[in-house]
């Protein structure tokens, strides 16, 4: 994973709440077995059916910082939602509240999910709508968003921030504690579920 310190790019005001992961990428786009190439699925229904949709406006089309309403990323656990945002070119999503699985997935893929107050989100929307194509800077080190003359503070949990800034691989980090995992396994009762050897019911 690439380390993230600051990013500056076009801000995209998405004035919608409850943007669920089916809206971010519909299920029909989840059939690939690769980890890239999901950008065509991003917000597909809105991009194809709604000329007024923000990403259909040329000034915002190359956006890389999404500013969304509350409860962003609800619903399905599909990490494809993060891959689609990333493949499209987004580096950060700002909202007042994220669904937890989405937030976790974002942290694994180097996409910053920053939490701001509703007032700050409203101000960002105003700036980005008044000046379409305006740039926004996301400064992860100082947890700040700069837009126009304004600076806002965002929240992100300390552990995720550290991992993003270091660009660390999670599995590698965990495997440093392999001995502790093995020790824990030795304490598990014998009756805990085992899928193998496979057993099945004799009758219906």
């Amino acid at each position: 994973m690439e380390a993230f310190t600051t990013h500056t790019g076009i801000g995209v005001p998405l004035r919608r709440s409850n943007v669920d992961t089916d809206q971010i990428i519909p299920a029909v786009y989840l059939k690939r077995v690769t980890k890239t190439g999901f950008d065509d699925g991003l917000f597909n229904a809105w991009r194809t059916n709604d000329p007024e949709f923000v990403l259909n406006k040329p000034a915002y089309a190359k956006g890389s910082v999404l500013v969304a309403g509350p409860d962003f990323g609800t619903g399905s656990s599909r990490e494809h939602a993060v891959w689609a945002l990333r493949d499209y070119g987004f580096k950060a999503v700002l909202s007042t509240r994220f669904a937890e699985i989405f937030r976790g997935n974002a942290g694994k893929q180097g996409l910053v999910a920053g939490i701001l107050s509703q007032d700050d989100i409203e101000q960002l929307w105003k700036i980005l709508e008044e000046t379409p194509g305006a740039e926004v800077t996301v400064d992860l080190e100082n947890r700040q968003v700069h837009a126009g003359e304004s600076t806002f503070r965002f929240d992100i949990d300390e552990y995720t921030r550290w991992r993003l800034m270091e660009g660390l691989d999670d599995i590698g980090l965990t495997l440093r504690h392999e001995a502790e995992i093995t020790a824990f396994e030795a304490t598990r009762p014998a009756w805990m579920p085992k899928t193998l050897p496979a057993r099945t019911a004799d009758s219906v």
């Binding site: 656990s77 990490e79 699985i101 552990y159 599995i171 980090l173 965990t174 495997l175 995992i181």
Partner: peptide, 20 residues
């Protein structure tokens, strides 16, 4: 609980997850 694909890989490799 549900997890994303990176976490699926993490559990396959380590049988654990880092969670708050």
């Amino acid at each position: 609980f549900g997890i994303g694909t990176s976490e699926v890989e993490h559990v396959l490799a380590t049988q654990t997850l880092s969670l708050t």
